[in-house]
Amino acid sequence: MSTATATSTATFASALNTAMSDAMEADESVVVFGEDVGTLGGVFRITDGLTKRFGTNRCFDTPLAESGIAGTAVGMAINGMRPVIEMQFDAFAYPALEQVFSHIAKMANRTRGRVRLPMVIRIPYGGGVGGVEHHCDSSEAYYAHTAGLKVFTPATVADAYLMLREAIDTEDPVVFFEPKKLYWSKADDDLSTLREAYESGTESSRLVGAQGQAVVVREGTDVSIISYGPSVSTAVKAAEAAAEDGISAEVLDMRSVVPFDEVALVRTVEKTGRAVVVAEAQGFVSVASEITARIQERCFHSLASPVLRVTGFDIPYPAPKLEEHHLPDVNRILDALDELQWED
């Protein structure tokens, strides 16, 4: 993987890698650190080549301790840096939670806005890669529940590049969830075109902003399938399959959980009158629950049917051989569409 040059076919991983190297090039206060991110380039190779290009002062390995990584990043951010830290896997981020919840989320508030922590916590998350226990959690709800954190999760190659650039430039701490099953996905995006758009400040290159910008990735009229991160591509496939049955499904990618784009959510549900929320995480007390609650509060009079959720089961993430039964797939989404009330 080359860090400097972009090709017309990019992967999700190369988009993230290029976003970091472009950000480091643009701003010398951007530093990248974590476990195995230096010489190895990360266990998923997302930081590949950064140490070689920028030196060990800018991208470096730390001792194996997640609270240490997060806490050190707090201090570096206090002292003028923009740290981008990598948590090796979703469930390995838990030792850092005290730093995340008690300081990273609260520092700006506690200091009346005098100390902001412009840092990014990158977390490869979700399943679909045959990972063992502790390697496939969808932990976004824990972070989204904590005031003071922003939670981004891109679903496409172009979004991966632009949203990571935006996360690094954001004054608030951002937890950046990378759907690991998408790392090797490809798209015909020219990263240098994206770089140009982002660095020239083109409005359309800012995908989150202060209030979030959910995006309609497929237009439809009968039902809205609302999703984010790893589930968006599944939702799109389900919408395509539903079209064959004569159902016109619109798919909304939330892009960020915090900030939460309620405007786009209300717009699509008022348009279609039906909603199915799809997410990999366990459904109980989840982001999917929050989306569902907001639809009920804001769109009650537009609804022709109860809102349904298609999520992971309320179990610890299952073993690799069983994950296919756990993850929301096209068939389960189609079943939910069938279950909606279609008669007046």
Binding site: G71, G75, V115
Partner: peptide, 30 residues
Amino acid sequence: DPKEHRVGSMSTPLTTQLLHAVGVAHAAKL
């Protein structure tokens, strides 16, 4: 203002601030 006085904000979690100290020193060293 912690930055004006170069004094971290007092808070109740224990020893979490020691890591902030390491980060401040590391940023300065870089």
